[in-house]
Design a protein around this nucleic acid. Sequence first.
DNA 1: GGCATTTTCCAAAGCGCTTTGGCCGCCATC
DNA 2: GATGGCGGCCAAAGCGCTTTGGAAAATGCC
Lengths: 340, 340
Amino acid sequence: MKLKDLADTLGLSPTTVSRALNGYPEVNEETRWRVVEAARRYHYRPNASARRLATGRVGAIGAVLHTHRNQLIDPHYVEFLAGVGERLSEDEIDIVLSPTKAGGEETPSYRRIATGKRVDAIILSSPPVEDERVRVLTGLGMPFILHGRTVNQPGHAWLDIDNERAFHQATKYLLDLGHTRIGLINGFKSYTYASHRERGYRAALAERGIKPDERLAGEALMTDDNGYRLMEQFLTLSPRPTAILVSSMMMALGCFRAVRAAGLELGKDVSMVAHDDVFPFLNADRMYPTMTTTRSSIRAAGTRVAELVLEMLRGRDPETIHELWPVDLVIRGSTGPVPS
Amino acid sequence: MKLKDLADTLGLSPTTVSRALNGYPEVNEETRWRVVEAARRYHYRPNASARRLATGRVGAIGAVLHTHRNQLIDPHYVEFLAGVGERLSEDEIDIVLSPTKAGGEETPSYRRIATGKRVDAIILSSPPVEDERVRVLTGLGMPFILHGRTVNQPGHAWLDIDNERAFHQATKYLLDLGHTRIGLINGFKSYTYASHRERGYRAALAERGIKPDERLAGEALMTDDNGYRLMEQFLTLSPRPTAILVSSMMMALGCFRAVRAAGLELGKDVSMVAHDDVFPFLNADRMYPTMTTTRSSIRAAGTRVAELVLEMLRGRDPETIHELWPVDLVIRGSTGPVPS
DNA sequence: GGCATTTTCCAAAGCGCTTTGGCCGCCATC
DNA sequence: GATGGCGGCCAAAGCGCTTTGGAAAATGCC
């Protein structure tokens, strides 16, 4: 059943049917009702490709799924996508996932999506400090928004959480509890969020005149595994750290196990603050002990990013889109005063 | 830069340029070379919508992303998608994620994707025992493949792992170690995989004449959290179970903590076998103790499903596509003889 | 050299929708 | 009663590509 068929059975022209369905004013209300009713009855759906070709709008936004074996397909990203999807589904807009194998060689994938007009806009996640994709997409004139920020590449839309302040605050909190040997288990510093977190951490230490022990700062892919390994390693140092900041809940689980394995008790022998992106399947409140966290829902960020993308498509100037979200510090059981 | 422009600058007709780029034989090799070269130089990319409209093929396959707040956006699904993506990217085929809010009300989303011709085929995951989507898509004539199976709905393509046999084997292994009070922490039994797992478990017990204690079988969303709660609950029973089967690594982490919290030791006081879908961020081999698992890479399944979808689109009869994969039992440190 | 093929290219007709420009009839206005 | 404006509809021209049905040029065969 196509538009023309529907028009024929109604004794109307395709023009009128199209207008009726798309809510244009120049059609009699009764006629519109007849059309809508018939469309429903015959399960009519406009052919997406045809409509896209005619309007020039796609009704889809792009995201790239990194599938490289050695790269983390991480839960953070899905949770973010879920948020994006939540908002986009309201407007019946699809998400086009373009799978990419390459580690560094990802720009072709973006280029393909962009120049083939497969999407109206692109959402970029987890940008490195300097992002090649930003350059490419700007060059192609493809609208895009960043979840996170770059450094020294202004002029594009972004939404980010205040990672620097969050880790500054968390570090300060630990310092206030008397800790001075504080470790940092971070994601790769080439990513902006990780570099911001480190900056916050270092700034807080500096304010108290503490020089960070470089052996207490680790960066790695944010997996359970790496959390375990880094923490294990930190605990062999002497004196060992009495507190630790962790960049993701996934890593925190690993740290957790390492602390246990070393026969130490979390919240007593070792304090821990982890960043919580709020996963439905990992609840800081129900851990044992409960986990002190810097918290910001990555899903909520996704929803907002989707909203902003829609605004861009409606004409909002990307340069006006800069949102920096504050981060909560939620104090729970995994932190306590420095052991004497 | 569109096809016509490219043709004009080359002094050729659109027809010839199109054929040259699409590898049709009726074009001189030298001409083809000129065209390809020019296309590269001018960064020409055919407009996806136009091509789709003309050919009737979309070059995209659909998947639905469940974003409902109370539903698990689970890591299993992403890992599976990553596998799908790995294969599809080779053919430059996109994945269209259609976000769906609804819990039970998901069929409209599939219907929209299908009748709007937004994709060439659909990949369905985690089917319940009886799947409405199967009926709908069959009715619409939209090609689809299931990752998993349904019961009593034959005639469609599927790929599944042998869940029943896997849990049968795992249970048998625990029985051989002397355990008789064996618990099961499962996903919801309305899903085929969960029901198959339970069947395997019960069958193995029955073979030894053991009547399962119904208080030792729990089903829930497969989160860390629920793993903790169910295990905690099981451990209050008396006599408590000496061994446990767990349906996902995520739940296993929770069980793990519950065992610890109860002051018990895994692999000694309590044995545990978990099903491992092989996540890059959760390595059974690096847990403490290492985890005995039934193992099957969900990513590999995704890759194969993608391959099968491509075959369907090339004309292979869906009814001939039924693959049942065996599952490995990997014995590690979390299982041991029943404590005396 | 004449004929039938084969090679190489092209014009034009779609694919299914949206949108521009117009037409027709009806009412209000003077 | 003529004029203008407006509501309600339609014909036809695109959107950018693929594909059918030739046509012209090159080639093979005797």
